[in-house]
């Protein structure tokens, strides 16, 4: 494992911790898209099915279990425990518009036509667009709390760091996987507009507010 990959994983873990702490400490999930969180839970469950069949390393197993468990916990907090604070009026993105095309794409473009491999490919495609309901929610309300912005920045950085990891692995190990690279580029590009606002506003102590 190289430093980009490790930083990417840590950034991903940090994003999840920030989100969980925000919801737990404020007893509220206002400003967070439950739709995106459902999509992330689907992403981790369908991607990490190999937990049952393949042992890679203790690190790998630990992280996979953490990602599955925390994604389910976040959905539970949003839809059960702190349901009253959930911003469902603004969280109106239709997730079937993401689920169906990514499933069809996974059936068409994959490394191997087996159930586990297709679900893995589906999870890669779905992850690349899973943040759209969240970005849609931010654009609808026109603003995001700073803690939500920190969460989005850490989450966006994670796949960006993975891109550097893939460049490194391509030159170092001659390893590459076009499916994850293309999906990773799409995923990172979707955050670019947000990254710009984060750097120009949130880091200068201002609230993330979209221009009217």
């Amino acid at each position: 494992m190289n430093v980009f990959r490790l930083l990417g994983d840590l950034s991903h873990l940090l994003a999840i911790i920030v989100l969980l702490l925000k919801i737990w400490k404020t007893r509220s999930c206002a400003g967070i898209s439950g739709k995106s969180q459902i999509l992330f839970a689907i992403v981790y469950i369908t991607r990490y099915l190999d937990l049952i069949t393949t042992y890679i390393s203790a690190y790998n197993m630990f992280m996979k279990i953490i990602f599955i468990a925390t994604s389910i916990a976040i959905v539970y907090l949003m839809y059960v425990k702190f349901k009253a604070t959930y911003d469902h009026n603004h969280d109106t993105f239709r997730i079937e518009f993401l689920l169906l095309p990514t499933l069809v794409l996974a059936l068409l473009i994959n490394h191997e036509f087996t159930i586990v491999e297709i679900l893995w490919t589906f999870s890669i495609y779905l992850e690349s667009v899973a943040i759209l309901p969240q970005l849609f929610l931010v654009s609808k309300t026109g603003e995001a709390e700073s803690i939500t912005s920190h969460y989005l920045f850490a989450l966006g950085s994670y796949r960006g760091l993975y891109l550097l990891n893939w460049i490194y692995r391509y030159y170092g190990e001659n390893y590459y996987d076009l499916i994850v690279i293309v999906a990773g580029i799409v995923q990172t590009v979707l955050y670019c507009d947000f990254f710009y606002l984060y750097i120009t506003k949130v880091l200068k102590g201002k609230k993330l507010q979209l221009p009217a």
């Binding site: 494992m1 190999d50 393949t54 890679i56 490394h111 590459y176």
Partner: peptide
């Protein structure tokens, strides 16, 4: 072609 049986990345 990547090894589809062993996925070490997350």
């Amino acid at each position: 072609k990547p090894d589809v049986q062993s996925k070490d990345e997350l």
